[in-house]
């Protein structure tokens, strides 16, 4: 299987005022094509930091990060933005939909920054594939939590990424909506997209092929 992202003995230290916080300590972690990984662990253990480093949202303090075989750990912000635009899709707990844009416009938002031209039909068909074909012209305020998260998933997929990173995607949803989102992530995996999910949801973790436990910034064996 082809490697998409590889973290090699990566550490990340933050500054919180005068205090230094070591969020990740010498972690090595690789994501391959077709992977379906759940990252679990207690709050503050470094799950989100690991996800963000894998998604090229920040530079590691030490260690190397390679994306599609290319070292990008200390790459410029512009290079990292390109990777985030083309290779990785993000889904967050809080959806981050723009309230004045319709479902269709929210889903197509990343195209502005990737300079890709995608026909409207293709965006519509993507939204239909996440079960929102009947909500195209609705505003986020008119949607349920589950529907908003499905818009966020469609938005993460619009640039056809090889990897989707999701941070607590069911954290803000009721059980019914959470179930529909879990099914959606299953379907992504079945379409060949690698999926890495940070979650506290045992049901979601159980459905992933691989579960990685993080404790105190290291991967627990």
């Amino acid at each position: 299987m082809n490697s998409i992202v590889k973290l090699d003995t990566v550490s990340k230290i933050y500054r919180r005022g005068r205090e230094e916080v070591q969020a990740i300590k010498n972690v090595s972690f690789e994501i391959f094509e077709g992977d379906q990984i759940a990252i679990c662990g207690p709050s503050g253990s470094g799950k989100t930091t690991l996800l963000n480093l894998a998604g090229c949202m920040d530079h590691p303090t030490t260690g190397t990060i390679s994306v599609e075989g290319k070292e990008v750990g200390q790459a410029s912000e512009s290079v990292l933005a390109d990777i985030r635009s083309r290779t990785v899709g993000f889904v967050f707990q809080q959806f981050f939909l723009i309230p004045t844009l319709t479902v269709l416009e929210n889903a197509a938002l990343p195209l502005i920054f990737s300079n890709r031209v995608v026909p409207r039909d293709q965006v519509v068909s993507l939204l239909e594939s996440v079960g929102l074909g009947h909500r195209l012209d609705h505003l986020p305020g008119q949607l349920s939590g589950g529907e908003m998260q499905r818009v966020a998933v469609a938005r993460a997929l619009i640039n056809e990424p090889r990897l989707v990173l999701a941070d607590e995607p069911t954290g803000n949803l009721d059980s019914r909506s959470a179930a529909s989102v879990i099914e959606l992530f299953d379907s992504l995996h079945s379409r060949g997209i690698a999926v890495v999910i940070v979650t506290h949801n045992p049901e979601l973790a159980a459905r992933c092929r691989k579960v990685v436990r993080i404790e105190d910034g290291t991967i627990a064996v």
């Binding site: 912000e77 933005a81 981050f96 938002l109 502005i112 920054f113 640039n159």
Partner: peptide, 16 residues
Amino acid sequence: RREMAYLKCVGAKRRD
């Protein structure tokens, strides 16, 4: 700020 941060997550560069 969070929305701007999210736009950066989906590929927005500084100039965007």
